[in-house]
Design a protein around this nucleic acid. Structure first.
Lengths: 194, 194
DNA sequence: ACCTGAACACCGTTCAAGT
DNA sequence: ACCTGAACACCGTTCAAGT
């Protein structure tokens, strides 16, 4: 059985999470950990005791959000439109990844590295996304040769681009819909001029 | 009139460029500048004298390559297939951006920041790409509402994704062609089952 | 059990001193 | 004109000393 943590430890943990949220919002996932400890009013050693790696901190901040995305994928599985369900989910994934600068990178790294502290929640999310993709493919509305990995990379790549200076959430939406339906105009539309 | 630089200065410049090429290849655009100076066998002050900012160093390494991309776009303007010409060029842009980790980011930042040392060459490249895009749009084979900025962001976002752990140049090609023709299967194909 | 901060090995950047 | 490296202010990470 696990013992309840000491009250001061519990409090420091919350202070650190709050400080990290603020620092990451300002400077992205690569924000200074020393600065996080400073903002929390806590020694740098205390930060490392609670979160041994930067990833552990990111994980603590985002865990629920990844779980939400997995839940969301599972609920979308029962929607009547397999195709739209996938597109909706990819847009939500991209929106989530846009929360912090550097987050798209963390997610791809976590999927690739089984040792990563983010791996479990990310992989669960990917598995749920895979079922959503498969269903859309079985319905014949999504290219059959695409893998979950490719589809996720695509969404995160566009989320990344929309995070860069000059980008916006508006840009992300436009890039996503472009990729979904193609940059190219189907040939039949060409001959269908007024 | 400009005077010829001292022979030792010229030599140090070349040593620094070679060292930077190697360091960037290993650790990306964010490689340690101190390490670059060390590899070049030169004092850190000498690096700063030749390249006052990290961007100046990147610019010196990539200048010709961006010019090449601009030339390439201009030559593609005379090709008989406006649509394929654009897709070819975007693939070449993405391949170039994949040279170093961090390069897609540098390019987008340079396009946004007129003060950037990379701005001039990047903006010239963008202008050439814009003409290529316009021609494909006029031919009716590319969505008319897309801007050069969006099309470049898309290509660089996918180049970025393919650079992440687990990625590959193969992935980049697949992501690009997916975005070009769409993740979605056109509806007519659905009813055209055997 | 937990907190703290000094210590170590790095980094980017500047600038006085040298040739 | 150019090179050098010490100096400054940072950083990530560890660990002995404290309560």
């Amino acid at each position: 059985m696990t013992v309840a943590p000491r009250a001061d430890a519990e409090r420091n943990r919350e202070l650190l999470l709050g400080a990290a949220r603020a620092a990451f919002a300002e400077h992205g996932t690569d924000a200074s950990l020393r600065d996080v400890a400073r903002r929390a009013g806590v020694g740098i050693g205390t930060l490392y005791r609670h979160f041994p790696t930067r990833e552990a901190l990111v994980e603590a901040l985002l865990d629920c959000n990844f779980d939400d995305l997995r839940d969301r994928a599972e609920r979308l599985l029962t929607s009547p439109a397999p195709h739209e369900a996938l597109l909706t989910w990819l847009a939500e994934l991209a929106a989530e990844a846009r929360t912090y600068q550097g987050l798209p990178q963390s997610i791809l790294a976590a999927l690739d590295d089984e040792q990563s502290e983010l791996h479990v929640s990310c992989a669960a999310m990917r598995a749920a996304g895979a079922r959503l993709l498969r269903r859309a493919q079985d319905a014949g509305r999504v290219r059959a040769d695409l893998s979950v990995y490719e589809v996720i990379s695509l969404a995160l790549g566009l989320a990344w681009a929309a995070q860069q200076p000059g980008g916006s959430s508006d840009l992300m939406g436009r890039l996503l819909s472009t990729a979904m339906y193609g940059l190219t105009v189907p040939e039949r539309s060409v001959s269908a001029g007024s």
